[in-house]
Simulated assay, not measured.
Amino acid sequence: MKRILTGDNTTGKLHLGHYVGSLENRVKLQDEYETFIVLADMHSFAYPKYVENPEVINASAKEVLLDNLAVGLNPDNVTFFPESAVPEIYELATILSMLVTHNRALRNPTIKEEIKDKNLGDNYSLGFINFPLLQVADILSVQADLVPVGEDQLPHLELTNEVVRRFNQVYGNTLKEIEGKVGRVKRLVGIDGNVKMTKSLNNAIYLSDFAQEVEKKVMSMYTDPTRIHPTDPGHIEGNPVFIYLDAFGTEEDNAQINEYKNRYMIGKVRDIEVKKYLAQVLNNFLDPIRKRRVQFESQPGLVKKILKEGTQKTRAEAQKTLEEVKKAMKLNYFE
């Protein structure tokens, strides 16, 4: 069976953008692929504001695991592990970093975007520049075939394949290239109209938000800035409210959504009416996720067992990969 590896930074709970970007594909593919989910806690330390707040990362790792379980990933079939608990990944990352120039690391567009979005200036660590290599090692440690990701993570996958090709060229055919699978919504806009929903901009609806929180956030959503009065014709394209309706509405909702679109474009419906309907659609979508989350929250022993067993399995696979890599590099001194 082919393998998936993907995961999440442990810097807070997961939101709707994570769902349409990657989580949805994880759930759909979990029976077709042997799936590994990394809780990327060491990645999280790459951001300056978390370096002195390890308790946030620790708590977030548990929240991220619960979110993955809540959307429908089956722990009997899916392997979860914290990145920091698999030291073989660090060793593999160190080895692979020898094949990547410093300039190549800095050219990563996702790194550039992160520096800009988070106003890091030049206040970032060596670990921040290296964390794409750590992600490469995450993927290759279990010899994954497919990586479901958001569009913003594609540069990391390109780097992964560059490293694979370079390693195989120098040391022989040892590692394999991977494919990415982007979600049906490449980047979900934030509730403030920003091009991306993200925790750092406080423009997210979380998978664990209560119904009242969802409604409050929806009612504050950015819509069409050119529409001053309810009777003004409105724009559908680029309007977050309608983007969310298209993303999370069911087939049963399609007729109502289309009616709202038609009325909105001719100025026959108020924003507040459409927003109330969106809140209903989102809460219908989130209700089963919230219920599953509560079920796992009530079983902390089971959650800990899932992580422990997942770590053991991942370490065993990572050790095999590391042995093959070292053998190819003539570093197998004790065989």
Rank of each mutant, 00 (worst) to 15 (best):
E215K: 13
V214Q: 07
V71C: 04
V147T: 02
S44K: 06
T6I: 00
N119R: 05
E55F: 14
K320E: 10
V185W: 00
T11V: 04
P230G: 09
V142Q: 06
A144I: 01
S298H: 07
S60Y: 06
G249R: 12
M265K: 14
L134E: 10
P132K: 12
M219T: 02
G7Q: 05
H43M: 09
K305C: 04
N77F: 03
L39K: 03
V269E: 11
Q280C: 10
R293D: 03
F128C: 09
G310Q: 08
K268N: 12
G267N: 10
R104K: 15
I191L: 13
A93E: 14
D209N: 15
K62N: 05
Y33F: 15
R26Y: 11
Y33Q: 02
Y47H: 14
K261L: 04
L302F: 14
N68P: 06
L154H: 03
F167W: 14
T101W: 12
A211H: 09
F334K: 11
R184P: 11
S97E: 04
L92P: 12
T79E: 00
K327D: 09
G121M: 10
E297R: 09
A255C: 01
E158V: 11
L39F: 12
G190W: 01
L133Y: 09
Y222C: 11
F167Y: 14
N173Y: 07
R107A: 15
D31G: 15
K304G: 02
A255T: 10
E252W: 11
H235C: 07
E215W: 00
S141K: 01
R166D: 06
G310K: 10
T160H: 07
Q153E: 06
T79K: 00
Q295Y: 12
A85C: 05
V136D: 02
V149H: 03
Q143M: 13
H156Q: 09
R107F: 01
D117P: 00
P155C: 12
D138G: 09
L99Y: 07
T321P: 02
G150P: 06
R270Y: 05
N194S: 14
E32Y: 06
V185L: 04
Y47S: 15
E52H: 11
L188Y: 13
V214N: 10
K268L: 12
Q256M: 15
I139Q: 03
H235D: 09
E252P: 02
K181G: 00
A328D: 10
D209R: 02
K217V: 02
N58I: 07
N108F: 15
D287V: 08
T110W: 01
P240S: 08
M219I: 02
V274L: 07
K181D: 04
E151S: 13
Q30A: 08
P155G: 14
N194K: 10
R292D: 04
E335L: 07
N161E: 07
N203W: 13
D122L: 14
N9S: 10
